[in-house]
């Protein structure tokens, strides 16, 4: 039997046998420029290359961002609200009917004509979107301030409705089978907020999105930077399908997490840096890394320091090993 990369990934998420360890290269990430969220955040992924110098500017809520090409990310320039109680009065939600979904699809027809798994990303999920409206400190306080919590709940509920509608359109128009929502919950040393705050303020809305995503037959990826290992059990309970996270030294020790939760959860793994950029010299090292993760139920991606040739070899060997097994 020969699976396509898309089929292999779907089998992976459905707990069915896979032919090889799925890799990020098996995904066709679709983030078209017509959704200005992706321009603002500096992550347009589509058929035509998008000029980096045009990154930044307003996102789909009108929040202004500035793009830093060195760190390859954007930060808010200013925040439209001083108080979250103003959101219903001042924030204009994007109207998804305004987008030409079919036109976007036609423009990217060749890009989407792929045997890879089409996926998309929603940047600034819930807490991050709150931050974009009122700034970090006000957002963090709003999560625990009894006088503001009701407004936060209302906002998050409306966001969940928006995200579900958005994902549904990507599923119906472009065949997307996977979605990743960004929402940083951690810092370098631990969670930004307590697990109880996560349970009360954020989890219900993530849960609603996950349930809708699963009802569409899609898989759900939670993106969160920082040390969030305390929330892995909650992610498992919510039905999060995968989390990549940061593998930085003691910050989320992925091998230890796989040992503890690998039978219940599918981790994404950034393959470790190689000791050389020379392809021939690195081949035994690459093979050892691929073989280490092959028996585990994880998906992988190459560290950004891999050369294109090393990436190609890693991918080829991953598939070769899978088919041998």
């Amino acid at each position: 039997m020969m699976y396509t990369p898309k089929e292999n990934f779907i089998h992976f998420y459905h707990n069915d046998p896979v032919e090889w360890t799925p890799m990020a290269d098996d995904i066709c990430m679709f983030q078209p420029e017509e959704i200005n969220l992706y321009i603002a955040r500096g992550f347009v992924l589509q058929q035509e290359p998008f000029p980096v110098e045009k990154y930044g500017g307003p996102d789909w809520f009108g929040v202004e961002w500035t793009y830093d090409p060195v760190s390859r990310g954007s930060m808010e320039v200013s925040h439209p609200l001083s108080d979250i109680s103003e959101w219903e009065e001042k924030i204009v939600f994007p109207n998804l009917d305004d987008y030409d979904w079919e036109g976007i699809g036609k423009k990217n027809a060749a890009y989407l004509n792929t045997d890879k798994m089409v996926a998309t990303t929603i940047f600034s999920g819930f807490f991050e979107r709150l931050i974009s409206f009122v700034g970090f400190e006000n957002a963090a306080i709003a999560l625990i301030d009894e006088e503001q919590q009701e407004d936060v709940h209302k906002l998050f509920s409306r966001l969940a409705d928006l995200y579900i509608d958005y994902i549904r359109r990507f599923h119906e128009h472009y065949g997307a089978m996977h979605v990743c929502i960004h929402d940083d919950w951690g810092t370098q040393r631990g969670l930004t907020f307590s697990p109880d705050v996560h349970t009360e303020m954020i989890r219900p809305y993530i849960q609603r999105v996950i349930d809708a995503v699963h009802a569409m037959g899609m898989s759900y990826e939670q993106h969160s930077c920082g040390k969030v290992v305390q929330l892995i059990p909650a992610m498992i309970e919510m039905g999060v399908d995968t989390w990549l996270g940061q593998d930085l030294g003691d910050l989320n020790n992925k091998d230890a997490l796989i040992a503890e939760y690998g039978d219940q959860f599918k981790f994404g793994v950034t393959l470790p840096k190689l000791s050389t950029t020379d392809l021939e010299a690195s081949k035994p090292e690459i093979r050892a890394i691929v073989e280490k993760y092959a028996p585990k139920r994880v998906w992988t991606r190459c560290d950004r320091t891999y050369t294109p040739e090393q990436k190609a070899y890693t991918y080829a060997y991953t598939r070769e090993l899978g088919r041998k097994r």
Binding site: E137, A140, I141, I144, D145, R189, G190, T192, S194
Partner: peptide, 14 residues
């Protein structure tokens, strides 16, 4: 000691 988190520190500081 990770007994409280960033929001609690912020409200205390304010």
């Amino acid at each position: 000691d990770n007994e409280i988190f960033v929001p609690e520190v912020l409200v205390a500081a304010r």
